[in-house]
Amino acid sequence: MTNQAREYQQGMNQVVTHIHALEETARKQKDIIKLNCVMDKEVQAKVNFGIAEQAFTALQENVARADEGGRTHEFTRLTIINQKVMVLGAEAENCIGEDLSFVGATRVDLDIDPNIPRDDPTQPGVPTTPIDRPPAASTYM
C-alpha cells in the first residue's frame, strides 16, 4: 500500500511538472487564453498535490501505528486525489490542444504464471561458512 501511494505521488509530481511545461509553452506562444486555462489547472493540481502529501504523511503514520482503518482511509484519499490530478493533467493538455499528441510514458505490464517459482534459480549460490567439527588428525596432536 505504501509503495502504491509512493507511485501515486510520483505520478502526480510528473503531471504537475508537465502542466508547468505546458504553461511555459503557452507563454512562448503568447496566447493569453491558453495561458489562463493552463494556469487554472496548474493551481488546482498543486493544491491537490499538497493535499496528497498530507495524506501520504498520515498514511505512513497510520502504518507505523498499525492502524488498519486509518491506513485504508488515507490510501483512499490518495487514490481519489491522484485521479483528480490525472484529470487536471488531461484538461491542461486540452487547453493547448495537446491531448492527442501526449500519450504519456510507455508502460509495460508483465504477467507471470503463478506456477513459476518467484526466486531466480539462474543465480549462483551464496558463500557459506564451513563449521564442521574438525576430525582429529593424530593421537599426539
Partner: peptide, 12 residues
C-alpha cells in the same frame, strides 16, 4: 547441532 553443510561449488 554443530554441523553445517558446505556449499558444494555451484550448487546448494
Amino acid at each position: 547441532a554443530g554441523h553445517a553443510q558446505q556449499l558444494m561449488g555451484p550448487v546448494t
